[in-house]
């Protein structure tokens, strides 16, 4: 130690250390705060209601799940894309229907309806769901997810917004 005559005494050294750490933290915050907002906050123009008419309720049989393929417009990052979409629709009454999201709530595989067993079956991990969407077998943690939907003038309108089952 003695050959380093210019070295500050330990207290000064500690003080310097604290200041260095404080400045370092300030620099990190200057970058981290905008970065956090940039990564976590939603894009500014929130997507409006994007209902698409997909079926005439009168053409559906009550209680019989039916797959309907349709086109919708979706905001995908910096683009609006027109894409093919699919949903399993179950008519539950004269003017009521459920539109299930086609992905299994377990790990996102695409399931299908089996007439034989009267169930929605997921081919990946053998989850099974009733036509109300309830879990009747397999590892699925919750009932089937649904698309936000509404019936207007006898027609089923479906949004791309997914409601958790």
């Amino acid at each position: 130690m003695c050959e380093h005559a210019n070295n500050p005494p330990p207290t000064r050294r500690t003080f310097y250390g604290l200041i260095i750490q404080a400045i370092g933290a300030a620099i990190a915050a200057v970058i981290a705060v905008p970065a956090g907002m940039y990564l976590l906050m939603k894009p500014k123009s929130a997507a409006g209601e994007d209902l698409v008419e997909i079926a005439n309720l009168s053409e559906l049989a009550e209680g019989a799940p039916r797959e309907i393929v349709y086109y919708r417009t979706r905001v995908d990052g910096w683009k609006r894309t027109r894409e093919k979409a699919t949903t399993w629709v179950v008519k539950t009454g004269q003017s009521n229907a459920i539109a299930f999201s086609p992905n299994c709530p377990h790990l996102g595989c695409i399931y299908h309806w089996e007439d034989d067993g009267e169930k929605f079956a997921c081919p990946c991990h053998a989850s099974a769901f009733s036509k109300e969407g309830k879990v009747v077998g397999g590892p699925a943690p919750r009932p089937l997810d649904r698309f936000a939907s509404r019936v207007e003038g006898g027609k089923l309108l479906v949004s791309s917004q997914v409601l958790r089952g």
Binding site: H4, N7, P8, R13, Y16, I19, I20, I23, G24
Partner: peptide, 25 residues
């Protein structure tokens, strides 16, 4: 006599980096 890199020079470097960041901001 020589001095050590820490803390004197590290402090100067850190302060300069901070000034750089402020200019950028």
């Amino acid at each position: 006599p020589k001095k050590r890199f820490y803390p004197g020079q590290v402090f100067k470097d850190t302060l300069a980096a901070f000034a750089y960041t402020m200019v950028l901001v």
